[in-house]
């Protein structure tokens, strides 16, 4: 079988594997509304509503039907892009979620890119010159990156660069509190502080992983083999990169996944209108459809990302079984 054909069949198989995962995700999201304490209507009903009114509303929202039927209807609508209506704002959940996802994604991608770039750089240098001064510095930085509370770091950065120096805006996603994105400097400026704050996490983890990887690769016998061919340090560098790439990229992908869902604190500190911000609002306002929609979309992203990482890794590492 040709390499292309086998790659396609792997693709098909990996995609098939995600179907049960997706279904599981949908069930959990659906169940959320019914597991949550209290009536699903508690936030729309006035506390003194009559039993008749309550019954009527339950029927309107379809909450009186059997679960399986409710799930079927909900899933069908979700597949068609209808995630219901936000109880708090009355706007379609899908529109709100996708706008927030766009904002979060942009921030997470930038933060991961910054973190990956510097993390890989530090990790490489540290792994190459193990136990040198650079190595110790890089290790200290990565420990800092992993252990510093990021909301604290965010506030420190805001105090320095926004309050004291006035170089960058402290909060928001655009000029005048606008939440609509545009690719210009006025909007990009808003992204810098939260992205840098957020990048500290993947930076630390990527640096640690890459350092260990590089040290492990350099200790392997094939590096002696490469020297014996006459390769210089530059030539050997290429081999180290190619050997480290699959694992490093997988770590980066997972970090991106965590940043997509785990940014509530940073988004709150910077009032960044992303999914974390939205989740926060949905929880405090008991806006169940919004909560449900946001979690569903985030979970889908995570599954998709894992799929991409998996496929990339298979494509990059010839040792992973392709048959």
């Amino acid at each position: 079988m040709s390499a292309n054909a086998s790659m396609l069949s792997i693709l098909a198989r990996r995609i098939t594997y995600t179907i049960p995962i997706l279904l599981g995700v949908a069930i959990v999201c659906f169940a959320l509304v019914h597991i949550a304490p209290g009536d699903p209507l508690v936030s729309v009903l006035p506390p003194d509503a009559s039993a008749d009114l309550q019954k009527m509303l339950l029927a309107v929202y379809g909450f009186d039907r059997p679960y399986i039927e409710q799930f079927g209807r909900w899933l069908w609508r979700a597949v068609n892009g209808d995630l219901g209506t936000s109880i708090a704002t009355g706007r379609p959940v899908a529109a709100e979620v996708f706008k927030a996802v766009g904002n979060t994604l942009r921030l997470a991608v930038l933060a991961t890119a910054i973190g990956f770039f510097f993390g890989a750089l530090f990790g490489f240098v540290a792994g190459y010159y193990r136990d040198s001064f650079v190595d110790k510095l890089a290790s200290a930085l990565s420990v800092f990156g992993v252990s510093v509370p990021h909301y604290w770091l965010g506030m420190v950065l805001v105090i320095i660069f926004a309050a004291e120096l006035g170089w960058l805006p402290p909060t928001g996603a655009g000029p005048g509190g606008s939440t609509d994105w545009a690719w210009d400097w006025a909007h990009l400026r808003h992204m810098i502080l939260p992205a840098v704050t957020m990048s500290v996490i993947p930076m630390g983890i990527v640096a640690r992983t890459v350092r260990a990887l590089v040290a492990e690769i350099l200790a392997q016998e094939f590096v002696v083999g490469l020297r014996a061919k006459g390769l210089t340090d530059r030539g050997i560098f290429r081999h180290v990169v190619k050997n480290a790439a699959p694992t490093a990229l997988a770590v980066m992908g997972l970090q991106l996944g965590y940043l997509l869902g785990g940014s509530i604190l940073i988004e709150t500190v910077f009032s960044w209108p992303g999914t974390g911000f939205l989740l926060n609002a949905a929880i405090f306002q008991r806006d169940l459809p919004l909560l449900q929609g946001t979690i569903l979309v985030l979970a889908l992203f995570f599954v998709l990302l894992n799929l991409i990482v998996d496929i990339l890794q298979t494509a990059l590492d010839p040792r992973i079984e392709r048959g």
């Binding site: 002696v224 490469l226 020297r227 210089t232 081999h239």
Partner: peptide, 28 residues
């Protein structure tokens, strides 16, 4: 270092005991 790199492989080369370890696993 430069002379050494030009010398290795061109004038002298080496065969290792365990080629599975002495070849880079991610290149053909």
């Amino acid at each position: 270092a430069r002379e050494l790199a030009d010398f290795r492989g061109a004038v002298v080369s080496m065969i290792f005991q365990e080629p599975l370890l002495a070849l880079d696993p991610v290149y053909t």
